[in-house]
């Protein structure tokens, strides 16, 4: 007789569908106390595609990413990763899904007691145990070279700038070769040159790794640069979704207002 966990895993496997979008969010609701943050939002992103989620501060953009990776549980609705609904999965089952996902936090969230090298090696040490120590080292160097941080292996996160921390966070997010990349405000708090460098880096990585990506930002220039499709959210739902030109040609008052002030 199968345990509940085994049944859930089998159900999950049955639900996996290779033709399904990499990320599909349907009718997602989320409140914190009396504050409604997401109000029935639905989005889908296919492999190789980048979607930028735009909106004013506090409109639930970051919450949306946290729901997609399972750091928060929705009040209702579904989050499907490669066709598998992840809502309600146990932590270890969710772990299997998360190994295919990379997440760049808004403030990079590097482990402050570990060096740059150890931060990037962290996912490898826990999930690539078949690799030797020197293979881990080689992979870490390769990742840090990709993000232009190969000279800072021994530095602590507190010794590097915000932009550099984001680069290291990006390298860590790519360590397990994910096919989904979630970026939370990748250019927030950076000077224009560092922001442009991060944009170029994200573009380069997307071209090389062909991942499905969601970039949450309120930086319209960044969104235009790195995403093929943009979704503008307000009051917990999508106001408009499409290319930058479609947003520009929109008659919706909120869209015009947002673009005017961006």
């Amino acid at each position: 007789m199968d345990t509940i966990d085994q049944v859930a895993v089998k159900r999950g496997e049955a639900e996996k569908d290779s033709s399904a979008p990499a990320i599909a969010v349907e009718d997602l609701h989320k409140s914190f106390g009396s504050q409604k943050v997401l109000n029935g939002i639905s989005l889908a992103v296919s492999r190789g595609e980048t979607l930028a989620v735009l909106g004013r501060s506090g409109t639930g953009k970051s919450v949306l990413l946290r729901l997609i990776i399972g750091l928060e549980k929705p009040d209702s609705g579904s989050v499907r990763i490669h066709g598998q609904d992840i809502v309600g999965l146990a932590l270890d089952q969710l772990g299997e899904i998360r190994m295919k996902m990379g997440f760049l936090f808004q403030h990079a969230a590097l482990y402050d007691s570990l060096t740059v090298e150890q931060n990037v090696a962290f996912p490898l040490q826990h999930h690539k145990k078949e690799m030797s120590k020197s293979e881990h080292g080689d992979r870490v160097k390769q990742l840090l070279t990709e993000v232009g941080m190969e000279g800072d292996l021994e530095k602590m996160p507190s010794d590097i700038s915000g932009g550099m921390q984001k680069r290291v966070g990006l390298a860590r997010a790519l360590a397990l070769e994910p096919d989904i990349l979630l970026l939370d405000e990748p250019t927030a708090g950076l000077d224009p040159i560092s922001a442009a460098e991060i944009n170029d880096l994200v573009l380069k990585l997307q071209e090389e790794h062909h991942m499905a990506s969601i970039v949450v930002t309120h930086d319209l220039h960044s969104a235009k640069t790195i995403a093929g499709r943009l979704a503008l959210i307000n009051e917990g739902n999508v106001v408009i979704e499409g290319s930058f030109e479609e947003l520009q040609n929109s008659d919706i008052e909120f869209v015009r207002e947002f673009l005017k002030h961006s």
Partner: peptide, 16 residues
């Protein structure tokens, strides 16, 4: 508060 525990979880490692 610095989201390091969330980062552990996002790296598919059980923080418990």
């Amino acid at each position: 508060v610095t989201e390091q525990i969330d980062a552990i979880e996002a790296s598919a490692v059980n923080p418990y």
